[in-house]
Design a protein around this nucleic acid. Structure first.
Lengths: 150, 150
DNA sequence: CATAACGTTGACGTTAACGTTAAATAGGTA
DNA sequence: TACCTATTTAACGTTAACGTCAACGTTATG
């Protein structure tokens, strides 16, 4: 399994090394270390990081909110002892209901954002039409003058 | 024409008064004033403000980037002397081409965001399926006995 | 017209999300 | 082994986007 050092990760993800260390500092990452304490990232670490910055940039999640997001995903992909070991059925049901609610809210939020972006898109396209028309008019005016030269 | 004071605007837009004054401070707004120097907002001012916060929240524009956005819209809706008075054809063509390019970039960006959100949405929906299945299993198991592997 | 409620301008404080620098250690290369 | 580049921790600095006061003027109301 190939392992990457922080500089490679930084350039692949378009982040600074400082940012990556900061994300670890606040608990969003936890790569393994070499003998000499150098951070070593797996491909999974990197994909996870990419998703994090994607959620940050596109969904506008704060780094705090990203904790919650990661928690939900890891709970459901069963990567956490904490959640696998809950045997009490009522406890587990409450957990699932809470997650379901969180997912519902996030879905609503995403649909809202999509609609808003869609309307911005339509406005931008319309503005672009206007610009194109304006440019055409300019084009014909210069053509007229050129013809007049003949 | 009805005019609004800052408190009404704040509650309608879900912003604090401080935020609204700050946005004016950095040049995003410029409402008229009363005799006694009280800020008075028109309905247009308010709609403009709503669009600003929408672009801030959904498109993730910084307040600096919003300046550019506003500039483009106002140039095209012809609300600015500065742009209406450009008579030099070459100058005007360059302006239009620059705006066209800006709009193109923004459209690309928006399409990218929509795709990303779409994929997040699909993931969230899939996770939700899993949660629902897990809850169903809990429902049937509660009569029998737990064999929880999830 | 008194007075409470609201508005205005500074000015300093706060928080998230990093940037920068320094001093020490690790890892790769001739 | 000597050297050079990359990495680590620790600490302080910075910037955007507001929050929070204080001191004072304005507006609405009984």
């Amino acid at each position: 399994m190939t392992l990457y050092k922080i500089d490679e990760v930084a350039s692949e993800c378009n982040l600074t090394k400082r940012t990556i260390r900061y994300y670890e500092e606040i608990g969003l990452l936890s790569p393994q270390r070499s003998e000499g304490n150098t951070r070593l990232y797996t491909r999974e670490d990197i994909e996870r990081l990419k998703k994090i910055i994607s959620a940050r940039d596109v969904l506008g999640f704060s780094l705090q909110e990203l904790h919650r997001y990661i928690e939900v995903v890891e709970m459901l992909t069963g990567q956490r002892e904490r959640y696998r070991n809950i045997t009490d059925l009522e406890e587990r049901r409450r957990q699932l209901e809470e997650i379901d609610e969180t997912l519902g809210k996030q879905l609503d939020m995403m649909e809202g954002k999509m609609r808003t972006i869609q309307s911005f898109k339509e406005e931008a396209e319309q503005l672009r039409q206007q610009v194109r028309k304006g440019m055409e008019r300019l084009g014909s005016e210069s053509t007229e003058r050129a013809e007049a030269d003949y």
